[in-house]
């Protein structure tokens, strides 16, 4: 079991080494990176917006419920929703969802290319396939996912507003006061550090799973599932480690 883990980790590192080498033709890589940015970014806006609005709304409603009958001012709802969105829910939940959507898609795409001999065809042409197929995905994710996370944080805050202000639980002024209270700029930095790290994990792990697929449709399905499962586990592990490192 341990040797198996080491074997896969070694293969993962070797694949990354192969992937992050000098591209053969910059313009081809640039085109592929733009295509990936479109797939990852534009293709994920709706799902990210949807989960974010509910994350913010649920956080606000739950916190309002907990504040009932306490001496804590109700404008704290805005403060809690803001920090929860920035520190945790926007980077982590968004990336967990993206691991399911984008990660499984990447693993299936690369696995399908492997099975249909597209990767072999590129190898025969002399293309560094790991470099051409993986690097644009990683670069695109590193650019686009932090933007999606930013969007998610804004929408979550908006969701909190929608769940509490129109329903009369607090006033708009109270919510805004909460949003402005105790703001720590470093929390935004923490959000972006998490977004970059999680984006790297979910793309490289998913590509690793897809790139080495062997066999038929069952193996492809397994690779796609593994991409999501391992990405999620590693994102949560990294989330904990970053929380310890960045807050100590």
């Amino acid at each position: 079991m341990n040797f198996n883990l080491l074997y896969h980790f070694g293969r993962y590192i070797m694949l990354l080494r192969q992937a992050f080498s000098r591209p053969e033709n910059w313009s081809m890589y640039w085109k592929e990176t733009l295509r990936q940015m479109n797939d990852i970014g534009i293709g994920s806006i709706v799902i990210v917006a949807l989960i974010s609005v509910f994350m913010g709304a649920v956080a606000a409603v739950q916190f309002a419920y907990q504040l009932d009958g306490t001496l804590v001012p109700r404008w704290y709802i805005g403060y809690i929703v803001r920090d929860l969105a920035i520190i945790e829910s926007a980077p982590t939940i968004t990336c967990l969802v993206l691991a399911g959507k984008v990660g499984s898609n990447m693993a299936a795409e690369l696995g399908g290319m492997r099975q249909k001999e597209h990767i072999d065809a590129m190898e025969i042409m002399g293309v560094n396939t790991a470099n051409y197929l993986i690097t644009p995905k990683v670069v695109a994710a590193l650019v686009v996912i932090p933007l999606l996370v930013t969007l998610s944080a804004y929408i979550a805050i908006g969701g909190g507003y929608l769940a509490t202000v129109p329903t009369g639980q607090i006033t708009a002024e109270e919510y805004a006061r909460g949003l402005r209270a105790f703001f720590i700029e470093f929390n935004v930095t923490m959000m972006y550090v998490k977004a970059f790290v999680f984006a790297f994990i979910l793309t490289t792990v998913s590509c690793f799973q897809g790139y080495y697929v062997q066999g038929g449709s069952i193996e492809l399905g397994k690779a796609s599932t593994n991409a999501v499962v391992f990405s999620n586990i590693l994102i949560l592990l990294a989330d904990y480690l970053l929380a310890v490192l960045l807050t100590s």
Binding site: K116, E117, H118, D120, A121
Partner: peptide
């Protein structure tokens, strides 16, 4: 140059 079974 290579021609694959499934054309690829």
């Amino acid at each position: 140059g290579m021609l694959f079974q499934g054309s690829a």
